[in-house]
Design a protein around this nucleic acid. Structure first.
Lengths: 183, 183
DNA sequence: CACTGCGGAGAACGCACGTTCTCTCTTACT
DNA sequence: AGTAAGAGAGAACGTGCGTTCTCCGCAGTG
């Protein structure tokens, strides 16, 4: 098996397991079992579990923001694009196997022990906040409105994760609409 | 040492360690070392680590909501009380050793593996949401406004935990004010 | 003074898991 | 064909930790 393929398979398995069960609850042997990539190969690709975790978060970050952007950019109107973020959240929350925000969960689990994981989480959240800011200003709103919208989105993610409901997305969207209209 | 005293000391140590480092990163032996309560006694009081975790979350829940309510109730005006919640969050975020919301962190760590922990987290969040609702309706606002305020508060907790800043509280407070005024 | 029973210190046990090693087999090059 | 490099399976190793057990001292009671 090609190295690049093995890497993808390992990351596919790691993502499913880490996200679904939590990072510490998943052993390297579980990743091997689910991916079909031998332990030897796993350790060639990722010298330690922490690096596999980092790679998992990094790859997921790219995909997550890519999916969000792809959905948002189907809207032509800049004002609608801001609200489309919350529509996308609602879809995401409703997906089979949704278990909250991977970065918030990882931070709760490893933020205190792994500086590299903490840095990944901060980078992801900063990137999301920056993206929101760009949408808000593109729609002609003051950039200061992006902060509250970010908090609404984060609150919705956490709450949807804990309660298993998609409703927080709609609530957040409605509140965002109200904030944008209040000027 | 009296049993009740030992229990309190064990919970004091458990709370400081679990909250500060994460639950899985703390061993029962660490709790013994920090509390001075012997392992034998610990296991008499809490038959397994999971029960110690449960008791930690439960006691913290009572204290956390008690501190919040005590702060909020110093305000006489029902309208001011709603916003006082966010002022209190700001104080909390600024406390030495603040590391985000204990329940959100615990959920990220153990929500997928321990149903009892997950239930504690849901109960705590429900209680907080109910409290917010009571404040909102007492101030004459429609109860539906409590949902968005809850999301703002949750988003602020998560963001303050990850970034280490108290600013999310002020942002959330301002957004809450705006939502309440929009009526 | 014996005896009983509880408490503490910490050793011991069993298991899980991160990481490495061994053995065997394939494969590609000379 | 012979051989060297690499891959996979899985055993092995070391450690950490949840939980239990052993041993010893000390209090209170007859």
């Amino acid at each position: 098996m090609d190295s690049a393929v093995a890497r993808e398979r390992a990351l596919d398995a790691a993502e499913e397991l880490f996200y679904g069960r939590g990072i510490q609850a998943v052993g390297m042997d579980d990743v091997r079992g689910a991916s079909g990539v031998s332990l030897k190969r796993l350790y060639q690709l990722f010298p330690a579990k922490e690096q596999l975790v980092e790679a998992y978060l990094e790859r997921r970050d790219g995909r997550w923001r890519g999916r969000l952007a792809a959905y948002v950019e189907r809207e032509q109107d800049p004002g609608a694009r801001v609200l489309a973020v919350f529509d996308w959240l609602e879809r995401w929350f409703g997906e089979e196997g949704f278990r909250g925000c991977a970065w918030i969960n990882s931070y709760g689990e490893l933020g205190a022990t792994s500086e590299r994981v903490a840095a990944q989480v901060r980078a992801h959240k900063r990137a999301f906040a920056d993206y929101l800011t760009s949408l808000v200003t593109a729609a002609g709103h003051p950039a200061a409105l992006a902060g509250p919208l970010f908090l609404l989105a984060e609150g919705a993610m956490v709450t949807a994760g804990i309660t298993g409901s998609t409703r927080p997305a709609a609530q957040a969207r409605e509140a965002a609409r109200s904030l944008l209209a209040a000027r």
